[in-house]
Design a binder for these strands. Structure first.
Lengths: 224, 224
DNA sequence: ATTCCTTATTTTGTATACAAAATATACTAT
DNA sequence: ATAGTATATTTTGTATACAAAATAAGGAAT
């Protein structure tokens, strides 16, 4: 018999998905993809029916989403999809810009050459999508790029927080790319990021990423 | 009949605490105050009995705490109080140092004179506690000081994230003040913060606060 | 009609009951 | 004894049932 893996099994095994996890993921997607619009009341009875689960896992899932800030639970009065005010969005983008600035600096210090290479490939993919006008794939690659930078910064807490804020902003950011000239300037900023990455110039990368996010605010603020 | 208050009632009314909220708060305190030690398995049956609630609100509370990062839920295998590795703590302190740096900068730009004054009073209280050797009150005022700075930075997202990380680190940080010389240097750093606050020198304040947290790491790392 | 109050209906909150999974125990074979 | 397997027990996950609160509907008085 072969020698078994040096890692204990549980770290390798695919994590079992409990029902409430699945439900949380499902509702999260519904919110992020806009099928449950901000401000919408979350009707337990119908949603539970549509998902084919009982209220128990459903309500547990709601608590998770509430802690993530996607949903507001008003005691005895039902839950609603959190509606972001302009101020909410600004505060998130301001914070995110500082977080990604930090991530940009750290990634240049800490990531391996291969990882940087991977980021640059991602960037090339984005460019291709841009040139071909494929908005949705571009958008997804863009999310992936920002997530990956945070991940490769080598600070798990930073990664978590970035992921959470990015999730909350997903819909908003999509709007920001909806006008062509906005898209063009976003792409130009990403070019600068790539250049800084190639030089592993953390300060430059951080600066561009921060700027990128404050520009996102400018692109987005009038839609709120 | 009198004219009613100009504010709608719900904004004034005390928020109704549902059972799962109370339970979440209760368990959170138990964890933070060390009555539920890191790594401890959370036994639903006994805990539910002690709290005198049924499993439903208890489990909902657990999901909240899990999302906050205080508890780990292992599907079908029970929950445990999250145990922080040295790396976890480092990543939190590194992130927190950047967050509070930002908070320090912003508070100098955005807070009112009265608010700054309030912070300085808090600082004086801390000094008094230090001189009298009252460790626990000092500790609480210290937490309050850092929270207040984040609050007065005028960015709600920043405040939330700071509060979350501070909560996770509460126990750890207490350790950091346990040795007298550590305490002394922490107080010295706070003196610098106060000086910067008086001058509304955001850069200086940010620098000291960031440094303060990286020093916390040095004070704490050997106890992990 | 409009306002107020009363009574239904729906919706939410919590407890309990049942099912499924994991863990512990006891037994058998070697 | 020990390893392995089968069975019992505990623990977790989910569904349902009941209670309490909020909302909606209906009707009486102005």
């Amino acid at each position: 018999m072969e020698l078994s893996s040096p890692f204990p099994l549980e770290t390798v095994a695919i994590e079992k998905q409990t029902l409430h996890d699945q439900v949380a993921n499902r509702i999260r997607d519904l919110i992020i993809e806009g099928h449950l619009a901000p401000g919408t009341r979350i009707d337990e009875t119908t949603l539970v029916e549509q998902l084919g689960v009982s209220r128990t896992p459903f309500r547990e899932a709601l608590r998770t989403l509430a802690a993530e800030g996607l949903v507001i639970i008003r005691p005895s009065k039902g839950s609603v999809v959190r509606k972001l005010t302009a101020q909410d969005v600004f505060s998130m983008l301001e914070l995110l810009s500082h977080l990604e600035k930090l991530a940009g600096q750290l990634v240049c210090e800490r990531a391996s050459d291969a990882d940087i290479e991977g980021l640059l490939e991602l960037h090339e993919d984005m460019l291709k999508r841009y040139r071909e006008g494929d908005r949705l794939p571009y958008y997804k690659l863009n999310q992936e790029f920002h997530s990956r930078v945070s991940e490769l910064a080598g600070n798990e807490s930073l990664r978590e927080v970035q992921a959470n804020i990015q999730a909350r902003l997903k819909r908003i950011r999509f709007l920001g790319n909806s006008k062509p000239d906005y898209w063009a300037s976003a792409v130009a900023e990403h070019e600068q990021m790539a250049a800084a990455l190639r030089k592993r110039d953390g300060d430059a990368l951080g600066r561009v990423m921060a700027q990128h996010l404050m520009n996102t605010w400018d692109r987005v603020k009038d839609n709120l």
